[in-house]
């Protein structure tokens, strides 16, 4: 965490970008983004996150990384999670409950099958990829 010069910042950006890209392209890694803004937390995101950790352990899934992110703005569907893994479309699920977590893990992560009814659509394209 050293102080950075302009050059350092640019090198650091390349490093973290490469690292994040590697994660995205890592066929063995499952990333779960949990919406942890106030609306998500109020709707029960911490409980969903805890259930995800517990259930992944129970199902013996170790290659999962939980990441907290801000709100996607889909307040009507909070708590919202997004699952990003190889061979599946990036999928937003909501409203999530702890009870729904085993279903998501067994169907989406293990059987690579979407869990209908809870799939939400991405609200906007990512301008940073434009």
């Amino acid at each position: 965490m050293a102080r950075k010069s302009r050059e350092d910042l640019r090198l650091h950006r390349e490093r973290v970008r490469t690292k994040l890209k590697e994660d995205d392209n890592n066929a063995d890694l499952i990333q779960v983004l949990v919406g942890m803004g106030t609306s998500g937390i109020a709707a029960g995101a911490p409980g969903v996150k805890a259930a995800l950790i517990e259930q992944c352990k129970l199902h013996g899934i170790e290659n999962v990384r939980l990441r907290q992110v801000g709100s996607l703005g889909l307040d009507f569907a909070e708590p919202v999670i997004e699952i990003r893994m190889a061979n599946m479309p990036d999928t937003i699920y909501g409203p999530m409950t702890a009870e729904l977590v085993p279903d998501i893990i067994e169907k989406h992560m293990l059987d690579r099958e979407l869990v209908g009814r809870y799939v939400q659509h991405r609200p906007a394209p990512d301008m940073m990829e434009d």
Binding site: R67, Q68, V69, G70, G73, V80, P123, A124, M127, M128
Partner: peptide, 14 residues
């Protein structure tokens, strides 16, 4: 929707 202000919301760990 076009997200400029909210470009990173829901994308990055704040």
């Amino acid at each position: 929707q076009v997200r400029i202000v909210l470009r990173n919301c829901g994308k990055i760990d704040p």
